[in-house]
Design a protein around this nucleic acid. Structure first.
Lengths: 332, 332
DNA sequence: GTGAAAGCGCTAACAT
DNA sequence: ATGTTAGCGCTTTCAC
């Protein structure tokens, strides 16, 4: 197995290690015949450069890291997948470090990546304070922040405009003549839920509509959370005909519970989700939702991380969610 | 940032690098006072050992690799997630290498991991020939094969008994008095579809039932594939009241199409999936399926990979799928 | 208990 | 065009 070192090749080819190194790295100044001979040896002897040695001397590794809460969540899986595609194209190894949703483990995840001399890191962090991140990004020009916006490092941010998402949901409910409106939100202490809700409320207001506080529930942003939120909503004994839900997973949980209780979607209540994960096209009913272009965002983040963007090109990278109308909504 | 090297610490502490190395690695024979002083320096100076240098001299890295087709598929995401959990517990870095479903890229993925001096690798490979794998595993005692069984290296395999899965599906359909039975299978040229189908057919036979060849369709094992397979099935104009589907994703696609065509599940047709992904508990109707304990399998695989199991302890690791009855099936 | 020194496999000047 | 050499930061005998 990959036992052969550069020395072995050099010896076999009767050249110095420097020459072998040159052909391995496609360096210049190598005689065509020599190059060919060495290349032959390399493949027959199954030589593979030792990445550790290379990274050691180069003081950097051909890797791209990504920090996400966990791999199992379809949304983050999609994020990781986008980065993986760019990684493959650029022949760099993907390093995934999971950081749960706590500042401490997010930092640990980043530290672990940096310890591997990984320079390009796409970070999904909701908990690390702005200042910490700003300091970190100033020292590391190849870090990229995804799904979060921080003014001071905006040129290294790739984020989604949550307000607009909320607004579009409000616009659509208004268009469908709904007026008893509920909201199922995430209970995570991060900005996104607040922003989506704020955008939603502002949107409603612009149509002379308003959101009854009793009809705002919070739960974990998961299928289970959706189930629970729907139960809470039902307990309020306050009528509603439309719900704006934090994400698709919750929305599907909500619908599941609603139907279990004999309420039909969209006949009795309309539901709008957020994210547009693949699944939302296959759930029953198919979900009306706001498309979160996570795949292109991830790819751009990876590209940005790979290219040391030392001097900020100011062009900020904000994405806007699009309303995708399917079957979980209906006019009143 | 992690600029300080072991030398810097040694200099600051007025000791040799050897001593610093000892305290970093919790080595023996270090005076209590010295150890304390050095530890203090380490944390105040923010020293982080250079993993590349360490891996270089140790000729191995504190990492665990996993080779899967892609990260976005929920099933593989769950697999990766299980491994990630064990990795975190053991403080080793997770390396994910995606290998599509082609022998060539699977090999590339493995090579890339090995090049990083990653010793423990959990491999999900459907395409690499047995012999290649056997040779590979003989050279690398910390490789583990997941979701596949090869006799010669069975002590390094963690697999699921597909036959039994098929059989249980057949048993249940028989119990529900179905006799016009269809099968939607994966069109991937790997063993699993064949084994599940064989088990299913054997099971049917044991109940005096039989599967009409016209009612066996193949498609890609995805939501989209399920849609297409269902359309194909409908075109046959051959009545059926039950379908055994290759996996949950396809099953949900199948149900989606069936309902679009006005067929109700389970009233008109019963559907059994395979895998029991989280989603199947939330789809409408909730999916009856065979539970694939991928999480425990992944964790065990990771544990096995981390522990050099040089001398085979013979205890093979076969898992058996369990039937989970939910709402997509009904007695005739 | 602590230090000196020899590499691990590779790259990158600097020579030739 | 090719070779020599000095490290990169770390672990690990082997002395003391």
């Amino acid at each position: 197995m990959s036992k052969a070192t550069i020395k072995d090749i050099a010896r076999a080819a009767n050249v110095s290690v420097a020459t072998v190194s040159r052909v391995v790295n496609n360096g210049p100044k190598v005689g065509a015949k020599t190059r060919e001979r060495i290349q032959h040896l390399i493949s027959t002897m199954g030589y593979q450069p030792n990445i550790n040695a290379r990274s050691l001397v180069m003081k950097k590794a051909a890797t791209i890291g990504v920090v996400i809460p966990d791999v199992a969540d379809p949304f983050f899986a999609a994020l990781a997948n986008g980065i993986d595609q760019i990684a493959r194209e650029n022949k760099v190894q993907l390093l995934i470090s999971t950081g749960q949703v706590s500042a401490e483990s997010e930092m640990k995840a980043i530290a672990s990546l940096m310890q591997q001399r990984c320079e390009s890191i796409v970070i999904h962090s909701k908990k690390i304070p702005d200042e910490t991140l700003i300091a970190l990004f100033n020292d590391n020009p190849k870090f990229v922040l995804i799904d979060r916006y921080i003014e001071a490092i905006s040129h290294r941010c790739i984020w989604l405009d949550n307000h607009i998402g909320g607004q579009k949901a409000a616009d659509y409910f208004s268009e469908l003549n709904h007026s008893n409106i509920a909201c199922v939100n995430s209970n995570l202490d991060i900005d996104d839920p607040k922003e989506r809700l704020a955008g939603f409320q502002r949107g409603l207001a612009s149509h002379g509509l308003t959101l009854n506080d009793k009809l705002i529930t919070y739960a974990s942003p998961s299928l289970q959370g959706g189930e629970q939120a729907a139960q809470d909503l039902l307990k309020q004994n306050t009528p509603f005909s439309a719900i704006f839900v934090y994400n698709d997973a919750m929305a599907i949980g909500v619908i599941s519970t609603l139907e279990d209780k004999g309420l039909s979607v969209p006949n009795d209540v309309s539901v709008i989700g957020f994210d547009d994960v693949l699944l939302s096209r296959y759930s029953r009913p198919k979900l009306t939702t706001l498309r979160y272009p996570i795949d292109s965002m991830a790819k751009n983040a990876a590209l940005l991380a790979l290219s040391a963007n030392i001097n900020p090109t100011a062009q900020s990278s904000s994405y806007s969610p699009e309303l995708v109308i399917r079957e979980s909504t209906q006019a009143l």
